Every structure is written in C-alpha cells, then in structure tokens.
Computed example of a mutant assay.
Amino acid sequence: MKLPPYAELLKLTVESHEDGAAPILAMPFESDVLGRPGFLHGGAIGGLLEMAAIVALHDALGNDDARVKPVNVTIDFMRGGREKTTRAQGIVTRLGTRVANVEAVAWQDDRDRPIAGARMNYLIARS
C-alpha cells in the first residue's frame, strides 16, 4: 500500500492489514515529532490520525480512482503521547457517493486507552 507523501515525513509504516479491517499505521518516536520535552507534538498526532483516516478511506474505496478532500476535521486529544511508537487506525463509518465519514483513533501501549481520536468528513471526487 502506497502512503501519501506526508506519511513519509512522519516515517509512518503500515503495521498490519487484516481482512475486513483498515490498516494500522505506526509512527516511531523521533526528535522530528517532539513537542514539549517528553511528549509528542499535537500536530504530529493530528497528522497520524489524518493519514490513518485517508488510508482507511482509500482501502474502503478499493480500486476506485477517486480523489478525497477533507471538508471537516475534529480532533480530541485525550492524554499526552509519550516517547514511544504511536499507532492509529481509521474506520469508515459512512461511504456515500460524494461524501464519506471517517473516524480515527491513536494509541500507544493499550488500544483501549487512546491518546487522541478524530472525526473527519471527506468529499469524494470520482473520475
């Protein structure tokens, strides 16, 4: 799976891709994503969530050569991300012909204790 160029900046990798589930992305901790000492920058977390949502949406679209454009993004920061690998996964909650709704969640050690979550709406432009 080819990730968007911004994913390369964050050094994101596809960690797993189970049948029927969206891929899980992993972002290693490095000085490039450092915010205040000992914590991830909120922008890096937001970028990871956005990439997870886009990857999930493209996975749901399959071979459709559609372009997606974010219309609305809401991010909830729940706890500080520490100096360790952060994972995220997107979930397409609605896939229409012109609009898609996607949720994404980011976590570190325990998936049941997320550090951030997002809700995003995308406009779909089909060829």
Rank of each mutant, 00 (worst) to 15 (best):
R119W: 01
V68A: 10
K2C: 07
K11D: 14
S16A: 13
S16L: 04
V55I: 10
S127M: 03
T85F: 12
N121I: 13
P4T: 13
L10F: 03
E50T: 08
E83N: 09
P5C: 08
I24D: 00
D32I: 12
H58W: 12
G81S: 04
A100V: 03
R36A: 09
L3Q: 07
E8C: 14
E8R: 09
Q108Y: 02
E15L: 14
D110F: 01
G46A: 15
V99I: 13
E30Y: 03
L3G: 04
D109S: 14
F29W: 11
L49A: 06
V73M: 14
L61E: 08
G47E: 08
H17R: 09
K2I: 11
E30V: 10
A88M: 05
I24F: 01
A56E: 02
A53R: 04
A7D: 05
L12R: 04
R87K: 13
M78R: 12
F77P: 02
V105I: 15
L49D: 05
Q89E: 11
A44Y: 01
G62N: 12
I124A: 00
R111G: 10
D110M: 03
D76E: 10
A116C: 08
G43W: 07
W107V: 00
G42D: 05
Y122S: 03
A100E: 02
D59F: 04
A44Q: 05
L3W: 05
A66E: 03
V33Y: 01
E83H: 10
P23K: 13
P70V: 14
A21Q: 15
G42E: 07
P37E: 14
D59I: 00
G47D: 07
N101M: 10
L95P: 07
G81H: 06
M51T: 13
G35N: 09
P4S: 10
M120H: 11
P4L: 08
G117N: 09
E18R: 15
L49P: 00
G81E: 04
A88H: 02
A106H: 01
Y6E: 11
T93E: 08
V71N: 14
G81A: 02
A44L: 02
G43E: 04
A100G: 03
E8N: 13
A66R: 02
A22C: 06
I115S: 00
R67I: 09
G43C: 09
R126I: 08
I75D: 07
K2G: 11
V99R: 14
K2T: 11
E103G: 10
D76N: 12
T97D: 13
G80D: 12
D109M: 05
G35I: 05
R79H: 06
L95Y: 09
I115G: 08
L25E: 06
V71A: 15
V92D: 11
V33W: 03
P5K: 03
N72V: 13
S16N: 14
L3N: 09
L95R: 07
H41W: 02
F29D: 01
L25Y: 09
L12D: 07
E18T: 12
A88N: 06
H17M: 06
M1A: 12
R113M: 07
E30I: 10
R111F: 12
R119C: 01
K84P: 04
L61Q: 12
F77V: 02
N121R: 15
L95T: 08
